[in-house]
Design a binder for these strands. Structure first.
Length: 432
RNA sequence: GUGGGUAUAGUUCAGUUGGUUAGAGCGCCAGAUUGUGGCUCUGGAGAUCGUGGGUUCAAGUCCCACUACUCACCCCA
């Protein structure tokens, strides 16, 4: 137990961190091009925030939150999603007073949900996400979808499907809900047990049911796209024509509904079929009522969350994972304590000059040191044994082969920089 | 929360109808080469066989429970 990570959590081993760095760099770069700036919010928030934003009838709130009371008697909750904290920040700091829209992203934000883990699902996972406040045009929706696809494309992912839908607004959705409920109520006895339940709680989600018996009923269910108001329809049309104008493929999927209550109009998912049944790599949509819901002005917003782990899984399955190589430029061999001291000093001078250097930290024979240097993948090994110290030199061996050079210690840094093809940035080690 | 599968060395896996001292590859350490890596050869360390109980003369192997991992449902990134 002591040496076991908690259920549903994953360590990121040193050998894997390069993967993360790579996609983080891509995300930062693309966000900058689109004019989004990074925002960081606390890992926990007042529980009330999520009840209000995510919705107190959702599964996330009802059974998946890590909620606890702190020593001051406050109920706090570890983030079960990324949007609420950013909305709170937007309102608390009055960012709505700035010129709009406000464009923010968050990166590597840990998200906690008490779920049963499976392929592509963890209790702690990490999200990259975008939030855009203060503009209601569908061009914004198109912009963030475009950003998401750019990130995925830059990462090298192929074959992901973009699904979009509109679930209407506060004006037109209630009417559709009534229609849908009436339709399913007529066919209630043919629905699966779970859907009979959903008929009461959230009939929209019946559309998402995979039960075969339900599928027949769903096939003839009224479509939300036929019921949305003129404004929503116009909004959805503009989104589609924006996406078409940049040649982006998408599929209108009237069944995607999303599990968070705050969505309005646009919802979308970017899905992989290669990482198991939890294939949604990115999901999001518009949330025009959310800012007002948590106490801010009536301001529209749109955003998405992208699962870092799922993205990495797709990259892995497509063999796009990079092999990390933390290769030192040089390893410094030594045979005794005096040599180790000199090696330490040389390593420091090399590191100051921009060279990645490692040295013998004791206890290894020369043979073992070379073996180790080989495993590290260094280009050069410098030898500082007794013979060399007496003569005031180091021997430098090119690990690809060739004769060893003898270099006076005083000019070793400069010579090594030259061999490595690096610019000299600092003075040579003095008085050695 | 529900269901299926799995659990043997750091790791990937063998282990016969229950049978006496639980093996291998890779990795790690060392030697062959007393100051020189890769290739090869030799040797070594490393396993309370997930935990607890039961059946049996005898359990890694059979039975039960628990735990963990894993896949799936639900839901979501």
């Amino acid at each position: 137990m002591l040496t076991k990570a908690p259920k549903g959590t994953k360590d990121i081993l040193p050998e894997a961190s390069a993967q993360w760095h790579r996609i983080e760099d891509i995300m930062r770069d693309i966000c900058a091009r689109y004019g989004f700036m990074e925002a960081r919010t606390p890992v926990f928030e007042h529980t009330e925030l999520f009840l209000r934003s995510v919705g107190d009838t959702t599964d996330i709130v009802q059974k998946e939150m890590y909620t606890f009371e702190d020593k001051g008697g406050r109920s706090v909750t570890l983030k079960p999603e990324g949007t609420a904290g950013v909305v709170r920040m937007f309102v608390e700091h009055g960012l709505f007073n700035l010129a709009q829209p406000t464009k923010m992203y968050y990166l590597n934000t840990p998200v906690f949900r008490y779920e049963n883990p499976q392929a592509g699902r963890l209790r702690e996972h990490h999200q990259f996400g975008i939030e855009l406040f203060g503009a209601k045009s569908a061009t914004c929706d198109a912009e963030i979808i475009s950003l998401a696809m750019d990130v995925l494309k830059s990462a090298g992912v192929e074959g992901l499907a973009l699904n979009i839908n509109s679930i209407g607004c506060m004006e037109c959705r209630p009417g559709y809900n009534t229609k849908l409920k009436a339709y399913f109520a007529e066919n209630e006895n043919r629905l699966c047990n779970m859907c009979k339940n959903r008929l009461q709680t959230n009939p929209l989600r019946i559309l998402d049911c995979k039960d075969e018996g339900c599928a027949d009923i769903i096939a003839d269910a009224p479509l939300i796209l036929d019921s949305i108001c003129g404004e929503c329809a116009g909004h959805f049309d503009l989104l589609q024509s924006c996406l078409q104008s940049i040649g982006m493929d998408f599929r209108i999927n009237p069944k995607i509904v999303r599990g968070l209550d705050y969505y309005t109009k646009t919802v979308f998912e970017i899905i992989s079929t290669e990482i198991g049944s939890q294939g949604t790599v990115c999901g999001g949509g518009r949330y025009d009522g959310l800012v007002a819901e948590v106490g801010g002005p009536d301001m529209p917003g749109v955003g998405f969350g992208m699962g870092m782990e799922r993205l990495l899984m797709v990259l892995q399955s497509q063999n796009k994972a990079i092999t990390p190589l933390n290769a030192y430029d040089i390893y410094i061999c030594s045979m005794d304590e005096e040599g180790a001291k000199q090696a330490f000093r040389l390593a420091k001078a090399l590191r100051d000059a921009g060279v990645s250097a490692e040295l013998n930290h004791g206890g290894k024979s020369m043979k073992a040191q070379f073996k180790y240097a080989d495993k590290l993948g260094v280009s050069y090994v410098a030898i500082m044994g007794q013979d060399e110290l007496e003569k005031g030199i180091i021997k430098l061996k090119d690990m690809k082969g060739g004769p060893e050079d003898e270099l006076p210690i005083g000019t070793a840094v400069e010579a090594i920089l030259k061999m490595l093809g690096k610019d000299k940035r600092f003075d040579d080690i003095e008085g050695v």
